[in-house]
């Protein structure tokens, strides 16, 4: 039995990719909500900086995945078989998400410029922005979700089912989408807290007080949503995991036996940590964050700490989950014995 230590590049790529898509989609929902509740300017104050952080994260993910392939300089060859290869589709959707999302982020960043600076832009371009932005946002979100789906299908692919019994289960797509949702929601929560603290430091500017109180309201609403999403998704995962394990045990073959054996021998501690951290982060800490978010005058610091703690626990749990995920492939068997 081998440990999947050579798969760190894939683990990092998948987590950063899923996190970015999750944040992008969650940002879209929050932005839409904030624009309806307050106005476009306030919504932009809340979400644009978080959006700009995604670019470097996605580029980092791309660099990480190059560590997995033997000939990174030929990476564009990976787009040659979109017809039948989920891996080719994953790469294509990731690239497209990065490009379209990037263009959208640049257009969105214009809202952070001062009115005088915005005046200098060509008039036609300025007029087109309100139409262009939502279209790009929708396209980028769909491309991102298509990336997560393709990434899950790489492992869920029935053509791999004979060999990769640990992957060819509905647990795989559920794990990928739950990751996207939980990491996205909680990372966005952390981003919003950071954004709010940054706005707080600029309190001396005229009109800042009013902005700050509106932003605090939005922040609390957003955290309520993020906590709710992560609690709901950890519920889904905790229902799926036992079903997955039972179905591995029910189908009696050597591969499944080897996988189950790994989970209660070599990987037992990691498996426990994965479940413990997921429950603590997405369950307990998220519930506390939600509780503090609905009671505005309660302890600010503790409130921020809960969200950051929940994110850190879920991130650590997901890293372990992906490590175990590739561990299930490390049972190299020739001829099924």
């Amino acid at each position: 039995m081998n440990y999947p230590d050579h798969e760190w590049s894939l683990i990092i790529f998948n987590i950063l990719g899923d996190l970015s898509v999750g944040v992008f989609v969650a940002l879209g929902i929050v932005h839409f909500y904030a624009a309806r509740k307050t106005d476009a300017k306030q919504a932009s104050q809340l979400s644009t900086r978080a959006l700009l952080v995604l670019g470097p994260i996605l580029v980092l993910g791309m660099l990480a995945v190059l560590g997995h392939v033997g000939n990174p300089e030929r990476m564009f060859n990976m787009l040659s078989n979109l017809d039948t290869s989920w891996l080719a589709r994953e790469v294509a959707f990731y690239g497209a998400f990065l490009v379209v999302g990037g263009v959208f982020a640049v257009l969105q960043a214009i809202t952070l410029l001062s009115p005088a600076q915005q005046e200098r832009l060509p008039e036609g371009f300025r007029k087109a922005l309100p139409t262009l932005r939502p279209i790009l946002a929708w396209v980028a979100a769909l491309l991102g979700l298509a990336f997560v789906f393709s990434a899950a299908m790489i492992y869920y692919d029935p053509r791999l089912a004979a060999r990769q019994t640990g992957w060819a289960h509905l647990y795989t797509p559920i794990l990928f989408f739950a990751d996207t949702g939980m990491l996205g929601a909680l990372a966005l929560g952390v981003g919003f807290v950071g954004n709010y603290l940054w706005l707080q430091r600029k309190q001396k500017e005229p009109g800042a007080k009013e902005t700050l109180s509106i932003q605090e309201g939005l922040l609390r609403d957003a955290i309520q949503g993020a906590s709710f999403v992560s609690i709901a998704l950890i519920g889904v995962l905790f229902v799926t995991i036992p079903i997955y394990l039972v179905s591995l045990g029910a189908e009696n073959n050597n591969l499944n036996e080897a996988i189950l054996d790994m989970l209660h021998t070599d990987f037992a501690m990691l498996w426990f940590l994965r479940l413990f951290l997921a429950f603590t982060g997405a369950g307990i800490l998220s519930a506390f964050a939600w509780y503090l978010a609905v009671r505005p005058q309660r302890r600010q610091r503790l409130f921020y700490l809960m969200i950051v703690g929940a994110f850190v626990c879920v991130l650590a749990s997901e890293v372990i989950a992906r490590y175990l995920f590739y561990g299930r492939n490390a049972v190299l068997l020739i001829g099924g014995m």
Partner: peptide, 24 residues
Amino acid sequence: QCIGCHYCEWACLWGAPQFYEDRG
């Protein structure tokens, strides 16, 4: 044409495709 992504290795039941560390 191959970029050494290992995916064929994961798919083959009999371990036929093999990775060359030196050539990638």
